[in-house]
Design a binder for these strands. Structure first.
Length: 269
DNA sequence: ATATGCACCTGTGTGC
DNA sequence: TGCACACAGGTGCATA
């Protein structure tokens, strides 16, 4: 469940240790399902210098010194972990990078994640498809993204990366609870005050989670193999049946668009 | 244009 | 103990 705060945590750690370094070699492990990598990826990355590791939405972007970039998406269970050079690969490891003596493993239990090389033109197209970055955009501008289509449920809008980038299932539920808006509410029935409140809460919850290095509800760990610290600050996600922090009403869980959705039936109208 | 539902995967937890 | 199955959820795609 890496969402913006988790991906940002990984980005910072990767950038800190990889920026300016040359990729010495890549070991392809090819365990499990074939993924769009292979020899071409190795040829396109080996010998290049990583100029920076950036993030847009939930996508990691490694800028290379030949003008190309690597895009990496963790999806649900992808992870980058720094290891010792003597590391022995385990079942779900896909690749090991040797970057000037630093060893980095890319592994992915469910194999939904990817790493691929893109040209600068391709990268531009990919990034243009995302909505605004919530931590770098004003409350007013974010609120304006949540207007149409009128019949769309507000949680569906929050999960759509073209509307606002980086929000996933956990932070959608959390922001809606903080703003007092039920996830099933249609955009057309949300007042401008509520939109502003929600936009503000999106920024707050994401910012607070980044400060705690993300949430580890299930699989997520950072590049040191450490869990994020935000789990205990969640107010509704994963708290079905527990009393709401505001009113003690038991938190309800429903399925909305095939996702578990948590809310307080009293606080969220 | 928008909504719906499935597919992609494996590990874990639950009920029988 | 074994077994079947629901569930976890980001995203792309086929279908309605």
């Amino acid at each position: 469940m890496p969402e913006l705060p988790e991906v940002e945590t990984v980005r910072r750690q990767l950038d800190e240790r990889l920026r300016g370094k040359r990729v010495s070699s890549i070991t392809l492990l090819k365990s499990g399902r074939e993924f769009p990598v292979g020899e071409k990826f190795v040829d396109g990355v080996q010998g290049r210098v990583i100029e920076a590791v950036e993030r847009r939405a939930k996508l990691l972007v490694w800028k290379l010194n030949d003008g190309n970039a690597i895009t990496a998406h963790l999806k649900m269970t992808g992870r980058f972990v720094f290891v010792y050079p003597s590391y022995v690969p385990t079942k779900h490891d896909r690749m090991i990078f040797d970057i000037e003596g630093v060893s980095l493993v890319w592994s992915d239990v469910r194999q939904f994640g990817f790493m691929k090389i893109v040209s600068s033109d391709e990268l531009e197209t990919i990034l243009a498809g995302y909505g605004p970055e919530p931590l770098e955009t004003s409350v007013a501008e974010l609120a304006d993204r949540l207007i149409a289509p009128k019949t769309r449920m507000i949680k569906a809008a929050l999960l759509n990366q073209e509307v606002i980038a980086g929000i996933g299932n956990i932070y959608a539920d959390e922001a809606l609870h903080r703003a007092g808006i039920r996830p099933t509410r249609r955009l057309g029935r949300v007042s401008s005050e509520e939109r502003l409140r929600l936009a503000k809460e999106i920024k707050s919850v994401l910012g607070e989670s980044v400060a705690q290095q993300g949430t580890s509800a299930n699989d997520y760990v950072d590049t040191r193999g450490k869990k994020g610290g935000f789990l205990s600050f969640l107010r509704v996600y994963g708290r079905e049946g527990e009393g709401c922090v505001n009113c003690r009403t038991p938190i309800k869980k429903i399925v909305l668009g095939q996702r578990g959705t948590h809310y307080c039936p009293t606080c969220q109208a």
